[in-house]
Design a protein around this nucleic acid. Structure first.
Lengths: 213, 213
DNA sequence: AAACTAATTAAACGTTTGTTTAATTTTAAA
DNA sequence: TTTAAAATTAAACAAACGTTTAATTAGTTT
Protein backbone atom coordinates (compact mmCIF):
# COMPACT_ATOMS: atom_id res chain seq x y z
CA UNK A 1 0.00 0.00 0.00
CA UNK A 2 2.93 2.32 0.61
CA UNK A 3 4.38 2.77 -2.91
CA UNK A 4 0.89 3.09 -4.36
CA UNK A 5 0.00 5.83 -1.93
CA UNK A 6 3.22 7.53 -2.85
CA UNK A 7 2.31 7.40 -6.53
CA UNK A 8 -1.07 8.90 -5.82
CA UNK A 9 0.54 11.72 -3.88
CA UNK A 10 2.89 12.37 -6.78
CA UNK A 11 -0.01 12.49 -9.18
CA UNK A 12 -1.96 14.78 -6.92
CA UNK A 13 1.00 17.12 -6.62
CA UNK A 14 1.50 16.98 -10.35
CA UNK A 15 -2.11 17.99 -10.93
CA UNK A 16 -1.75 20.78 -8.37
CA UNK A 17 1.37 22.16 -10.05
CA UNK A 18 -0.15 21.95 -13.52
CA UNK A 19 -3.37 23.59 -12.40
CA UNK A 20 -1.54 26.33 -10.53
CA UNK A 21 0.09 27.48 -13.74
CA UNK A 22 -3.11 27.22 -15.76
CA UNK A 23 -5.15 29.11 -13.16
CA UNK A 24 -2.49 31.80 -12.89
CA UNK A 25 -2.40 32.27 -16.66
CA UNK A 26 -6.06 31.90 -17.55
CA UNK A 27 -7.91 32.34 -14.28
CA UNK A 28 -10.07 29.87 -12.38
CA UNK A 29 -13.13 30.21 -14.60
CA UNK A 30 -11.01 30.43 -17.73
CA UNK A 31 -9.49 27.02 -17.15
CA UNK A 32 -11.50 23.86 -17.82
CA UNK A 33 -11.01 20.56 -16.06
CA UNK A 34 -10.48 18.93 -19.45
CA UNK A 35 -7.62 21.35 -20.07
CA UNK A 36 -6.09 20.48 -16.72
CA UNK A 37 -6.45 16.76 -17.38
CA UNK A 38 -4.88 17.03 -20.81
CA UNK A 39 -1.91 19.08 -19.66
CA UNK A 40 -1.34 16.88 -16.62
CA UNK A 41 -1.81 13.70 -18.71
CA UNK A 42 -4.54 12.25 -16.55
CA UNK A 43 -8.14 11.30 -17.17
CA UNK A 44 -10.77 14.01 -16.69
CA UNK A 45 -12.44 12.05 -13.95
CA UNK A 46 -9.24 11.87 -11.92
CA UNK A 47 -9.45 15.51 -10.92
CA UNK A 48 -12.81 15.03 -9.27
CA UNK A 49 -11.75 11.65 -7.96
CA UNK A 50 -8.79 13.17 -6.15
CA UNK A 51 -10.10 16.58 -5.19
CA UNK A 52 -13.89 16.31 -5.27
CA UNK A 53 -14.50 19.39 -7.37
CA UNK A 54 -12.77 22.14 -9.30
CA UNK A 55 -13.28 24.57 -6.44
CA UNK A 56 -11.87 22.16 -3.86
CA UNK A 57 -8.85 21.70 -6.11
CA UNK A 58 -8.42 25.46 -6.03
CA UNK A 59 -8.55 25.49 -2.24
CA UNK A 60 -6.02 22.66 -2.10
CA UNK A 61 -3.63 24.66 -4.29
CA UNK A 62 -3.83 27.66 -2.01
CA UNK A 63 -3.46 25.50 1.08
CA UNK A 64 -0.60 23.44 -0.33
CA UNK A 65 1.34 26.38 -1.70
CA UNK A 66 0.86 28.77 1.20
CA UNK A 67 2.27 26.12 3.47
CA UNK A 68 5.61 26.34 1.65
CA UNK A 69 5.83 30.11 2.00
CA UNK A 70 5.42 30.55 5.73
CA UNK A 71 7.49 31.13 8.83
CA UNK A 72 10.62 32.86 7.56
CA UNK A 73 9.67 36.31 8.77
CA UNK A 74 9.29 35.15 12.36
CA UNK A 75 12.98 34.32 12.56
CA UNK A 76 13.92 37.81 11.43
CA UNK A 77 11.62 39.43 13.98
CA UNK A 78 13.16 37.50 16.83
CA UNK A 79 16.79 37.75 15.71
CA UNK A 80 18.41 39.66 18.58
CA UNK A 81 21.59 40.47 16.68
CA UNK A 82 19.82 42.74 14.17
CA UNK A 83 18.73 46.31 14.77
CA UNK A 84 15.51 47.67 13.32
CA UNK A 85 16.78 48.84 9.95
CA UNK A 86 18.74 45.63 9.47
CA UNK A 87 15.56 43.69 10.10
CA UNK A 88 13.76 45.76 7.48
CA UNK A 89 16.54 45.01 5.03
CA UNK A 90 16.26 41.31 5.75
CA UNK A 91 12.50 41.51 5.33
CA UNK A 92 12.92 43.22 1.97
CA UNK A 93 15.34 40.57 0.77
CA UNK A 94 13.00 37.84 1.97
CA UNK A 95 9.96 39.36 0.27
CA UNK A 96 11.76 39.95 -3.02
CA UNK A 97 13.18 36.45 -2.99
CA UNK A 98 9.92 34.75 -2.03
CA UNK A 99 7.58 36.73 -4.24
CA UNK A 100 9.83 36.51 -7.29
CA UNK A 101 10.36 32.78 -6.86
CA UNK A 102 6.70 31.97 -6.25
CA UNK A 103 5.34 34.63 -8.58
CA UNK A 104 2.96 32.23 -10.32
CA UNK A 105 1.30 31.41 -7.05
CA UNK A 106 1.21 35.02 -5.99
CA UNK A 107 -0.44 36.04 -9.23
CA UNK A 108 -3.13 33.50 -8.50
CA UNK A 109 -3.56 34.82 -4.97
CA UNK A 110 -3.88 38.35 -6.29
CA UNK A 111 -6.48 37.30 -8.79
CA UNK A 112 -8.49 35.73 -6.04
CA UNK A 113 -8.20 38.81 -3.84
CA UNK A 114 -9.28 41.15 -6.61
CA UNK A 115 -12.41 39.10 -7.29
CA UNK A 116 -15.37 39.06 -4.93
CA UNK A 117 -16.04 35.36 -5.35
CA UNK A 118 -15.37 32.49 -2.95
CA UNK A 119 -15.42 34.49 0.26
CA UNK A 120 -14.10 31.66 2.42
CA UNK A 121 -11.02 31.30 0.26
CA UNK A 122 -10.43 35.03 0.32
CA UNK A 123 -10.73 35.03 4.11
CA UNK A 124 -8.23 32.22 4.35
CA UNK A 125 -5.75 34.08 2.15
CA UNK A 126 -6.06 37.29 4.11
CA UNK A 127 -6.07 35.71 7.56
CA UNK A 128 -3.48 32.98 7.05
CA UNK A 129 -1.08 34.51 4.55
CA UNK A 130 -1.24 38.28 4.29
CA UNK A 131 -2.16 39.35 7.78
CA UNK A 132 0.37 37.35 9.82
CA UNK A 133 3.22 38.55 7.63
CA UNK A 134 2.06 42.15 7.77
CA UNK A 135 1.81 41.94 11.52
CA UNK A 136 5.44 40.93 11.84
CA UNK A 137 6.65 43.78 9.63
CA UNK A 138 4.41 46.18 11.52
CA UNK A 139 5.92 45.07 14.81
CA UNK A 140 9.43 45.68 13.50
CA UNK A 141 8.49 49.17 12.34
CA UNK A 142 6.67 50.09 15.54
CA UNK A 143 9.53 48.90 17.72
CA UNK A 144 11.91 50.92 15.57
CA UNK A 145 9.76 53.99 16.13
CA UNK A 146 9.54 53.38 19.87
CA UNK A 147 13.29 52.99 20.21
CA UNK A 148 13.85 56.23 18.31
CA UNK A 149 15.70 54.49 15.50
CA UNK A 150 12.83 55.21 13.09
CA UNK A 151 10.84 58.33 12.35
CA UNK A 152 7.12 58.38 13.15
CA UNK A 153 5.93 56.98 9.84
CA UNK A 154 2.63 55.35 8.90
CA UNK A 155 3.43 51.69 9.62
CA UNK A 156 0.58 50.12 7.68
CA UNK A 157 1.10 52.16 4.54
CA UNK A 158 4.85 51.67 4.74
CA UNK A 159 4.18 47.95 4.49
CA UNK A 160 1.88 48.64 1.55
CA UNK A 161 4.73 50.49 -0.15
CA UNK A 162 7.15 47.61 0.26
CA UNK A 163 4.82 44.87 -0.87
CA UNK A 164 3.07 47.08 -3.41
CA UNK A 165 6.32 47.95 -5.17
CA UNK A 166 7.19 44.29 -5.63
CA UNK A 167 3.66 43.41 -6.70
CA UNK A 168 3.63 46.25 -9.20
CA UNK A 169 6.72 44.81 -10.84
CA UNK A 170 5.40 41.23 -10.71
CA UNK A 171 1.96 42.19 -12.02
CA UNK A 172 2.71 41.50 -15.67
CA UNK A 173 5.82 40.84 -17.70
CA UNK A 174 4.60 43.12 -20.44
CA UNK A 175 3.95 46.15 -18.27
CA UNK A 176 7.17 45.58 -16.33
CA UNK A 177 9.27 45.42 -19.50
CA UNK A 178 7.60 48.48 -20.92
CA UNK A 179 8.22 50.49 -17.78
CA UNK A 180 11.84 49.33 -17.59
CA UNK A 181 12.54 49.88 -21.29
CA UNK A 182 13.32 46.22 -21.83
CA UNK A 183 12.64 44.12 -24.92
CA UNK A 184 9.29 42.32 -25.08
CA UNK A 185 10.81 38.87 -24.76
CA UNK A 186 13.00 39.72 -21.78
CA UNK A 187 12.03 37.82 -18.64
CA UNK A 188 12.92 40.15 -15.78
CA UNK A 189 11.92 37.72 -13.07
CA UNK A 190 14.64 35.20 -13.85
CA UNK A 191 17.33 37.90 -13.92
CA UNK A 192 19.18 38.16 -10.63
CA UNK A 193 20.44 41.61 -11.56
CA UNK A 194 16.87 42.82 -11.76
CA UNK A 195 15.96 41.18 -8.48
CA UNK A 196 18.94 42.93 -6.91
CA UNK A 197 17.86 46.23 -8.45
CA UNK A 198 14.41 45.95 -6.87
CA UNK A 199 15.73 45.11 -3.44
CA UNK A 200 18.35 47.86 -3.61
CA UNK A 201 15.69 50.40 -4.51
CA UNK A 202 13.48 49.25 -1.66
CA UNK A 203 16.31 49.39 0.85
CA UNK A 204 17.20 52.91 -0.24
CA UNK A 205 13.55 53.90 -0.09
CA UNK A 206 13.18 52.54 3.43
CA UNK A 207 16.45 54.04 4.62
CA UNK A 208 15.25 57.44 3.45
CA UNK A 209 11.80 56.97 4.86
CA UNK A 210 12.47 55.30 8.18
CA UNK A 211 15.80 56.47 9.52
CA UNK A 212 16.13 59.53 11.70
CA UNK A 213 18.79 61.76 10.24
CA UNK B 1 -33.29 59.55 -35.99
CA UNK B 2 -31.66 61.78 -33.38
CA UNK B 3 -33.52 60.81 -30.19
CA UNK B 4 -33.47 57.15 -31.17
CA UNK B 5 -29.73 57.20 -31.64
CA UNK B 6 -29.46 58.94 -28.30
CA UNK B 7 -31.50 56.22 -26.67
CA UNK B 8 -29.31 53.56 -28.20
CA UNK B 9 -26.20 55.29 -26.92
CA UNK B 10 -27.72 55.46 -23.45
CA UNK B 11 -28.48 51.77 -23.55
CA UNK B 12 -25.00 50.96 -24.79
CA UNK B 13 -23.46 53.01 -22.02
CA UNK B 14 -25.75 51.40 -19.52
CA UNK B 15 -24.65 47.95 -20.64
CA UNK B 16 -21.03 49.05 -20.47
CA UNK B 17 -21.37 50.34 -16.92
CA UNK B 18 -23.25 47.25 -15.77
CA UNK B 19 -20.74 44.92 -17.38
CA UNK B 20 -17.78 46.84 -15.99
CA UNK B 21 -18.93 46.15 -12.46
CA UNK B 22 -19.73 42.52 -13.17
CA UNK B 23 -16.39 41.89 -14.87
CA UNK B 24 -14.52 43.62 -12.07
CA UNK B 25 -16.27 41.50 -9.44
CA UNK B 26 -16.45 38.14 -11.15
CA UNK B 27 -13.95 38.33 -13.98
CA UNK B 28 -14.51 38.16 -17.73
CA UNK B 29 -14.96 34.39 -17.91
CA UNK B 30 -16.88 34.35 -14.64
CA UNK B 31 -19.57 36.64 -16.00
CA UNK B 32 -22.17 35.32 -18.43
CA UNK B 33 -23.94 37.36 -21.08
CA UNK B 34 -27.25 36.26 -19.59
CA UNK B 35 -26.14 37.74 -16.25
CA UNK B 36 -25.22 41.00 -17.94
CA UNK B 37 -28.53 41.14 -19.77
CA UNK B 38 -30.52 40.46 -16.64
CA UNK B 39 -28.71 43.06 -14.53
CA UNK B 40 -28.86 45.65 -17.31
CA UNK B 41 -32.53 44.81 -17.99
CA UNK B 42 -32.03 44.12 -21.69
CA UNK B 43 -32.56 41.07 -23.85
CA UNK B 44 -29.65 38.63 -24.12
CA UNK B 45 -29.42 39.20 -27.85
CA UNK B 46 -28.95 42.93 -27.42
CA UNK B 47 -25.40 42.52 -26.15
CA UNK B 48 -24.29 40.80 -29.32
CA UNK B 49 -26.47 43.11 -31.39
CA UNK B 50 -24.73 46.17 -30.02
CA UNK B 51 -21.19 44.91 -29.48
CA UNK B 52 -20.82 41.87 -31.72
CA UNK B 53 -19.43 39.57 -29.06
CA UNK B 54 -18.58 39.31 -25.40
CA UNK B 55 -14.92 39.95 -26.11
CA UNK B 56 -15.64 43.03 -28.23
CA UNK B 57 -17.79 44.33 -25.39
CA UNK B 58 -14.78 43.91 -23.14
CA UNK B 59 -12.59 45.89 -25.53
CA UNK B 60 -15.23 48.62 -25.74
CA UNK B 61 -15.26 48.93 -21.95
CA UNK B 62 -11.50 49.38 -21.83
CA UNK B 63 -11.58 51.83 -24.70
CA UNK B 64 -14.52 53.81 -23.34
CA UNK B 65 -13.24 54.00 -19.78
CA UNK B 66 -9.59 54.70 -20.55
CA UNK B 67 -10.70 57.66 -22.60
CA UNK B 68 -12.13 59.31 -19.48
CA UNK B 69 -8.94 58.86 -17.45
CA UNK B 70 -6.39 60.51 -19.72
CA UNK B 71 -4.51 63.77 -20.13
CA UNK B 72 -4.37 65.22 -16.62
CA UNK B 73 -0.75 64.39 -16.00
CA UNK B 74 0.41 66.31 -19.06
CA UNK B 75 -0.77 69.56 -17.54
CA UNK B 76 1.24 68.96 -14.40
CA UNK B 77 4.39 68.18 -16.38
CA UNK B 78 4.17 71.40 -18.34
CA UNK B 79 3.11 73.65 -15.46
CA UNK B 80 5.98 76.13 -15.25
CA UNK B 81 5.02 77.48 -11.84
CA UNK B 82 5.73 74.20 -10.06
CA UNK B 83 9.12 72.87 -9.06
CA UNK B 84 9.98 69.19 -9.26
CA UNK B 85 8.78 68.10 -5.82
CA UNK B 86 5.59 70.11 -6.18
CA UNK B 87 4.93 68.29 -9.43
CA UNK B 88 5.44 64.95 -7.70
CA UNK B 89 2.96 66.02 -5.04
CA UNK B 90 0.43 66.98 -7.69
CA UNK B 91 1.00 63.66 -9.43
CA UNK B 92 0.41 61.77 -6.19
CA UNK B 93 -2.82 63.66 -5.56
CA UNK B 94 -3.94 62.99 -9.11
CA UNK B 95 -3.15 59.28 -8.96
CA UNK B 96 -4.84 58.80 -5.59
CA UNK B 97 -7.88 60.70 -6.75
CA UNK B 98 -8.18 58.97 -10.12
CA UNK B 99 -7.41 55.43 -8.99
CA UNK B 100 -9.69 55.63 -5.97
CA UNK B 101 -12.55 57.07 -8.01
CA UNK B 102 -12.22 54.64 -10.89
CA UNK B 103 -11.17 51.71 -8.77
CA UNK B 104 -13.69 49.33 -10.34
CA UNK B 105 -12.19 49.97 -13.74
CA UNK B 106 -8.67 49.68 -12.44
CA UNK B 107 -9.41 46.35 -10.83
CA UNK B 108 -10.58 45.14 -14.21
CA UNK B 109 -7.43 46.45 -15.89
CA UNK B 110 -5.29 44.71 -13.30
CA UNK B 111 -7.10 41.46 -13.81
CA UNK B 112 -6.46 41.68 -17.50
CA UNK B 113 -2.79 42.47 -16.99
CA UNK B 114 -2.29 39.58 -14.62
CA UNK B 115 -3.79 37.12 -17.11
CA UNK B 116 -1.99 36.04 -20.25
CA UNK B 117 -5.10 36.06 -22.40
CA UNK B 118 -6.15 38.52 -25.08
CA UNK B 119 -2.71 39.83 -25.97
CA UNK B 120 -3.99 42.69 -28.12
CA UNK B 121 -6.04 44.06 -25.26
CA UNK B 122 -3.10 43.79 -22.90
CA UNK B 123 -0.90 45.61 -25.39
CA UNK B 124 -3.45 48.37 -25.67
CA UNK B 125 -3.64 48.77 -21.90
CA UNK B 126 0.11 48.91 -21.51
CA UNK B 127 0.79 51.15 -24.50
CA UNK B 128 -2.15 53.53 -24.23
CA UNK B 129 -2.74 53.76 -20.50
CA UNK B 130 0.17 52.69 -18.36
CA UNK B 131 3.19 53.65 -20.41
CA UNK B 132 2.27 57.25 -21.35
CA UNK B 133 1.52 58.08 -17.72
CA UNK B 134 4.71 56.44 -16.48
CA UNK B 135 6.70 58.37 -19.05
CA UNK B 136 5.44 61.68 -17.74
CA UNK B 137 6.27 60.84 -14.14
CA UNK B 138 9.65 59.54 -15.24
CA UNK B 139 10.37 62.81 -17.01
CA UNK B 140 9.53 64.80 -13.89
CA UNK B 141 11.84 62.64 -11.79
CA UNK B 142 14.70 62.76 -14.29
CA UNK B 143 14.48 66.52 -14.65
CA UNK B 144 14.50 66.81 -10.88
CA UNK B 145 17.66 64.74 -10.74
CA UNK B 146 19.30 66.76 -13.50
CA UNK B 147 18.54 70.05 -11.81
CA UNK B 148 19.97 68.76 -8.54
CA UNK B 149 16.66 69.08 -6.72
CA UNK B 150 16.38 65.29 -6.47
CA UNK B 151 18.81 62.61 -5.43
CA UNK B 152 19.95 60.04 -7.97
CA UNK B 153 17.16 57.56 -7.40
CA UNK B 154 15.89 54.72 -9.60
CA UNK B 155 13.19 56.54 -11.60
CA UNK B 156 11.32 53.48 -12.88
CA UNK B 157 11.12 51.74 -9.52
CA UNK B 158 10.19 54.99 -7.79
CA UNK B 159 7.16 55.10 -10.07
CA UNK B 160 6.45 51.46 -9.19
CA UNK B 161 6.50 52.45 -5.51
CA UNK B 162 3.99 55.25 -5.98
CA UNK B 163 1.53 53.32 -8.12
CA UNK B 164 2.19 50.04 -6.32
CA UNK B 165 1.34 51.51 -2.94
CA UNK B 166 -2.02 52.74 -4.18
CA UNK B 167 -2.74 49.48 -6.00
CA UNK B 168 -1.86 47.49 -2.91
CA UNK B 169 -4.48 49.38 -0.97
CA UNK B 170 -7.05 49.15 -3.76
CA UNK B 171 -6.45 45.44 -4.37
CA UNK B 172 -9.18 44.20 -2.09
CA UNK B 173 -11.39 45.73 0.55
CA UNK B 174 -10.91 42.74 2.79
CA UNK B 175 -7.10 42.76 2.77
CA UNK B 176 -7.04 46.55 3.09
CA UNK B 177 -9.31 46.53 6.13
CA UNK B 178 -7.36 43.74 7.75
CA UNK B 179 -4.07 45.57 7.26
CA UNK B 180 -5.52 48.83 8.56
CA UNK B 181 -7.31 47.23 11.53
CA UNK B 182 -10.69 48.36 10.30
CA UNK B 183 -14.02 46.56 10.63
CA UNK B 184 -14.97 44.18 7.86
CA UNK B 185 -17.86 46.30 6.60
CA UNK B 186 -15.87 49.53 6.48
CA UNK B 187 -15.44 50.88 2.97
CA UNK B 188 -12.09 52.68 3.01
CA UNK B 189 -12.34 53.88 -0.58
CA UNK B 190 -15.27 56.19 0.04
CA UNK B 191 -13.63 57.73 3.08
CA UNK B 192 -11.86 60.98 2.27
CA UNK B 193 -9.82 60.73 5.45
CA UNK B 194 -8.36 57.49 4.24
CA UNK B 195 -7.66 58.93 0.80
CA UNK B 196 -5.87 61.79 2.50
CA UNK B 197 -3.90 59.37 4.64
CA UNK B 198 -2.64 57.52 1.57
CA UNK B 199 -1.61 60.66 -0.25
CA UNK B 200 0.07 62.08 2.85
CA UNK B 201 2.07 58.90 3.29
CA UNK B 202 3.14 58.93 -0.34
CA UNK B 203 4.17 62.57 -0.20
CA UNK B 204 6.25 61.93 2.92
CA UNK B 205 7.76 58.87 1.31
CA UNK B 206 8.71 60.80 -1.81
CA UNK B 207 10.02 63.76 0.16
CA UNK B 208 12.32 61.43 2.05
CA UNK B 209 13.34 59.53 -1.02
CA UNK B 210 13.75 62.25 -3.61
CA UNK B 211 14.85 65.45 -1.91
CA UNK B 212 18.51 66.28 -1.38
CA UNK B 213 19.06 67.19 2.24
C1' DA C 1 -50.56 56.17 -44.66
C1' DA C 2 -47.11 53.46 -46.74
C1' DA C 3 -42.54 51.89 -46.83
C1' DC C 4 -38.41 51.15 -44.85
C1' DT C 5 -35.03 50.73 -41.29
C1' DA C 6 -33.60 49.96 -36.68
C1' DA C 7 -34.59 47.92 -32.23
C1' DT C 8 -36.27 44.18 -29.59
C1' DT C 9 -37.84 39.71 -28.56
C1' DA C 10 -38.31 34.56 -27.50
C1' DA C 11 -36.59 30.53 -28.99
C1' DA C 12 -33.26 27.63 -30.62
C1' DC C 13 -28.37 26.60 -32.12
C1' DG C 14 -24.32 23.71 -31.36
C1' DT C 15 -20.52 23.61 -27.83
C1' DT C 16 -18.51 23.33 -23.75
C1' DT C 17 -18.87 23.12 -19.00
C1' DG C 18 -18.24 20.44 -14.28
C1' DT C 19 -19.53 16.23 -12.66
C1' DT C 20 -21.07 11.32 -12.38
C1' DT C 21 -21.60 6.66 -13.68
C1' DA C 22 -20.53 2.10 -14.46
C1' DA C 23 -17.18 -0.88 -16.23
C1' DT C 24 -12.41 -2.17 -16.28
C1' DT C 25 -7.66 -2.42 -14.89
C1' DT C 26 -4.15 -2.20 -11.49
C1' DT C 27 -2.43 -2.95 -6.99
C1' DA C 28 -1.71 -4.91 -2.42
C1' DA C 29 -3.09 -8.00 1.11
C1' DA C 30 -4.77 -12.75 2.43
C1' DT D 1 -3.80 -17.51 -6.47
C1' DT D 2 -7.68 -15.62 -4.82
C1' DT D 3 -9.90 -11.50 -3.04
C1' DA D 4 -10.90 -6.97 -2.03
C1' DA D 5 -9.86 -2.27 -2.52
C1' DA D 6 -8.08 1.49 -5.14
C1' DA D 7 -7.07 3.61 -9.46
C1' DT D 8 -8.25 4.51 -14.06
C1' DT D 9 -11.04 4.71 -18.00
C1' DA D 10 -14.57 5.99 -21.72
C1' DA D 11 -18.99 7.42 -21.93
C1' DA D 12 -22.81 9.91 -20.61
C1' DC D 13 -25.25 13.59 -17.79
C1' DA D 14 -27.77 17.83 -17.34
C1' DA D 15 -26.83 22.55 -17.17
C1' DA D 16 -24.84 26.67 -18.83
C1' DC D 17 -22.37 28.87 -22.24
C1' DG D 18 -21.90 32.49 -26.35
C1' DT D 19 -24.20 33.24 -30.37
C1' DT D 20 -27.72 33.21 -34.13
C1' DT D 21 -32.15 33.10 -36.09
C1' DA D 22 -36.47 34.49 -37.55
C1' DA D 23 -40.41 36.97 -36.24
C1' DT D 24 -42.28 41.14 -34.25
C1' DT D 25 -42.49 45.87 -32.62
C1' DA D 26 -41.13 50.67 -32.75
C1' DG D 27 -39.59 54.67 -35.02
C1' DT D 28 -38.43 57.62 -39.03
C1' DT D 29 -38.75 59.05 -43.65
C1' DT D 30 -41.16 59.74 -47.83
Amino acid sequence: MRPELQKMKDKKQHIIETTLHLFAEKGFEGTSIREIAEKACVNVAMVNYYFGSKEKLFEKIIEYKSFTTRGILDEILNNQSLNAIQKIEEIIDTYVQKLFTHRTFHRLVHQELILNQREALQDSIVNNMIYPNSLIVKTVIERGIKSGEFKKVDPELTIASIVGTINQVLLSKKSCNKLMNKADDYIPYDDNKFKKRVSTHLKNLMHDHLLNK
